[in-house]
Design a protein around this nucleic acid. Structure first.
Lengths: 228, 228
DNA sequence: ACACAGTATTAGGCTGTCCTAAATTGGAGC
DNA sequence: GCTCCAATTTAGGACAGCCTAATACTGTGT
């Protein structure tokens, strides 16, 4: 049964669900109904209903009261959306004057409307980039993705100097604040102090010191310089 | 009542209806249910139903059994879609390697997904063009549009030389054929002969003679050279 | 003046996606 | 092992859009 479902085009809603579930299940962990509902700003019953339909179509597996996991096919569809989204973001920033804080919303709509042809043309125009403007890796057209291993800034030891690789946020205000501190992908950051509570770290970037709280500390994914 | 409806965003379907009705009513003539149904590939009852909803929202006026006409507001929304569509086509041809026969379908989907911001950025990148790749005029952002007066090729007198201004087709096969004859906007065409029946005209373009039938004769909109 | 052909509308249904309110279930803590 | 809370699912409903079949209208031709 599960094999028969391929190739009919998915609705916008379905694409959003698959992308959300993919994002909620690193390492193939199961995503819960309420997590999905929260991420998509829907009610939990709506999610239960859709999840049931998607599992009938072979895109995911649902163990009632336990959560959902994408099937191979669902994962493929989700990665396709992630590729689209990130390439569109990269294209808009590179060629149409978007800044990284405004690009997410536009890409969120376009990712459902572009053809595969257009996506690949944008990729070519960009020189087939491997990361988007936030440093997130762009899945290849064949669905492979290599997650680069990063450490949240909040886990970096005092005295270490690292490079910001990914900035895991989509809200414009947050991104603008982060950019105003100079914490864009590629920036070099030194952790100069750490508070014993609340994961507060003091960092130095571009000669300036700032204190970073728990949330931003997790949003900023870093790695040793010259690491991949 | 009619004024209260503004600014809620329109659905894809609604946008398609408005654009179709706009295209079917040159000079504010009324469009019939069956014309709309045919253009959108829907059943007439579906059109009646939607038309009813749209007239409740103040986007058009419906006189039962007589046809529909856009209101000011509906016309504005339709022109917005036409602008989007034509600018997207121009952008894709100019920057992403699309040819005029493949670009329509892509634009048809994108026009519903782009933001006003993106449309205006594409317009700037293009240098604010006034016509799209098919020679169709692009409405201004304020909704004004100047229709250039053209004559169908089938109405040009024998012996006259004219310039192709607009090519009013969207089907890829037809457009490819037209392009293969060199009949792109800007091409100079001389009518060398005309059959007494079926509107067949013999033309010369780029030193080659071709016979053009009734349909293509209407698709090819021409004007005297150096006419605007 | 009237019948009829063709067009348009009404009636009744289906699907996809969402919602709120009311059960149900699983696991934490006693 | 039982109780209870929070998470989840079921029940029941709304709305946008679409369809087919049945009915109503309009204008044409005689």
């Amino acid at each position: 049964m599960s094999a028969a479902a391929a190739s009919e085009s998915l609705t916008r809603s379905v694409e959003d669900y698959l992308k959300a579930i993919y994002q909620l299940s690193p390492e193939g962990r199961a995503a819960s109904t309420s997590e999905i509902a929260h991420l998509l700003a829907l009610s939990p019953p709506s999610v239960t209903g859709m999840v049931k339909r998607l599992s009938e179509h072979g895109l995911l597996e649902h163990i009632p009261y336990r959560g959902v996991q994408l099937t191979q096919e669902g994962r493929r569809a989700a990665l396709r959306m992630v590729r689209r989204h990130r390439l569109i973001e990269a294209y808009l920033v590179e060629f149409l004057g978007y800044s990284w804080d405004t690009v997410h919303e536009e890409a969120e709509r376009l990712e459902h409307a572009v053809s595969d042809t257009l996506v690949e043309r944008m990729a070519s125009a960009l020189g087939n980039p491997v990361v988007d403007p936030h440093g997130d890796p762009i899945p290849a057209a064949d669905g492979s993705i290599q997650e680069l291993s990063c450490t949240p800034l909040s886990d970096i030891a005092v005295g270490e100097t690292v490079e910001v690789h990914r900035v895991h946020a989509s809200e414009p205000e947050r991104l603008r604040y982060i950019a105003s501190l100079g914490l864009v992908p590629g920036a070099r950051v030194t952790v100069v102090d750490r508070q014993p509570f609340d994961d507060l770290v003091t960092i130095e970037v571009a000669g300036q010191q700032h204190v970073i709280g728990r949330e931003l500390g997790h949003v900023l994914q870093c790695a040793k310089t010259a690491d991949v």
